[in-house]
Design a protein around this nucleic acid. Structure first.
Lengths: 122, 122
DNA sequence: TCAGTATAATACGGTACCGAAACGAACCAG
DNA sequence: CTGGTTCGTTTCGGTACCGTATTATACTGA
């Protein structure tokens, strides 16, 4: 049960991985956008604008803007729903999958470093 | 060694906690600001503008702006260094400590939920 | 005292976000 | 075919961020 974290572990991991995130990925993604991206790639499809908005407790324009930005980065893709052409289905992309994978690598790497440090220090 | 995470655990935790972060805390903190805040509260002082800038690989104005914003929120406090009055020492505040603690609570709570879900499902 | 260096803050033009409101397109019921 | 509803998008004024360049202040050494 590796996810039963102690406070120092939880915050230490957040600290290390967030720092590395900024260093490697840069500022070109807000926390909201990151949450949206992770949800698209980790929760089962289909994903719609209103669904994402409800999930995060934000308004729809927030989702539209985030999809604009991330679509321009190639991280997601929009497709009209043919069964109800009012809907937009948000699709994953190869670049987006690579991005998420890279983020996972950062978290795992920083977690390993902390495990070593805590194992010897505390 | 609870920090030796598997990819699904690492990303699942990030997903859940980031989502909850957005829901509870809102958009009023960028990833850079979050990294700066966590570093101030988790790394040993003293913290200076140039030190934080070097740590994150960003320019000093980035730090100055972040301190303006977070200072206005009451999360950090600036104090001139009397021994070298060119320096600014960044101090912690009660509100900032509470904020970081709340973030830790979110991560731990989401980690527990995932541990339960994975324990039964995978 | 007078350069030279170092620190943090500020100015600038550009971009992107924010919430709230209005909008057009697509469905649906009568 | 007409009025109401549900989509996602766009617009609006305002705010904050971005990187780069510049500024003011403070220390240092000749």
């Amino acid at each position: 049960m590796p996810l039963d974290l102690r406070p120092s572990e939880a915050l230490g991991l957040w600290h290390a991985a967030t720092l590395e995130h900024v260093r490697v990925i840069g500022p070109d993604l807000t926390i909201r956008q990151l949450a949206i991206l992770l949800h698209i790639y980790l929760a089962p499809p289909p994903h719609t604008v209103r669904g994402l908005a409800a999930m995060l407790g934000v308004t729809k324009p927030v989702i539209t803007r985030a999809l604009d930005t991330m679509g321009h980065m190639g991280l997601v893709r929009r497709v009209r729903d043919d069964r109800d052409r009012r809907n937009v289905i948000i699709k994953r992309t190869v670049d987006g999958a690579l991005f998420v994978e890279k983020l996972g690598d950062i978290i795992i790497a920083e977690g390993r470093k902390l495990a070593l440090a805590e194992g010897s220090g505390a």
